[in-house]
């Protein structure tokens, strides 16, 4: 064994390196890692804590009850406010208005649902827009239709 001293030394060096690495690794591991599986449990709360952007119809109705009622009684009753208007968070924060509501009024918004194209279910109301109006421009649809209750009286 007296001639194996170098082997013992290099062996000891390897053991020291591995041990050092294992110890360093324990310190680098995040606190909640592995609590519920191979992941950092704290991430669950972090993701859940993000603030919602869309508020839903009820949130809009708090200030705009009249419009909400009109919509709920018309043929757009399944079309929630934030489809055509911007999401709540761009308009209200903590119950206080922070900016004007951006509303798209172009015919293109209406066309997304009601232009006749391949793919739409047959029973859904859709129009060949070139034939439906003289000139496709701006808010032309709103000349005849009220977007909150679009059915013609």
């Amino acid at each position: 064994m007296e001639h194996a001293r170098h082997v013992l030394r290099i062996g000891a060096l390897v053991v020291v390196i591995i041990a050092g690495f294992s110890i360093a690794r324990t310190f680098a591991k995040p606190a909640t890692y592995g609590d519920y599986g191979p992941y950092r449990a704290a991430a669950v709360g972090e993701i859940a804590a993000r603030a919602p952007v869309h508020g839903g119809v009820e949130a809009c109705a708090k200030c705009h009850a009249d419009k909400a009622k009109e919509r709920a009684e018309g043929s757009h009753k399944t079309v929630v406010c934030e489809i055509c208007h911007s999401p709540l968070a761009s308009h209200v924060k903590d119950g206080v208005k922070v900016a004007a509501m951006v509303t798209e009024k172009s015919w293109k918004l209406c066309a997304r649902c009601h232009q006749q194209i391949a793919g739409r279910p047959a029973g859904f109301p859709q129009q060949n827009l070139e034939q439906h109006v003289d000139k496709l421009e701006g808010a032309v649809c709103m000349d005849c239709h009220n977007p909150h209750s679009p059915k013609m009286q």
């Binding site: 001639h3 194996a4 001293r5 170098h6 082997v7 030394r9």
Partner: peptide, 19 residues
Amino acid sequence: LALFTYDTSPEALAIDHRA
């Protein structure tokens, strides 16, 4: 680099060879 041991005896070299 030699880990402070200078053993180049045939026995040590034989160990090296096996290693």
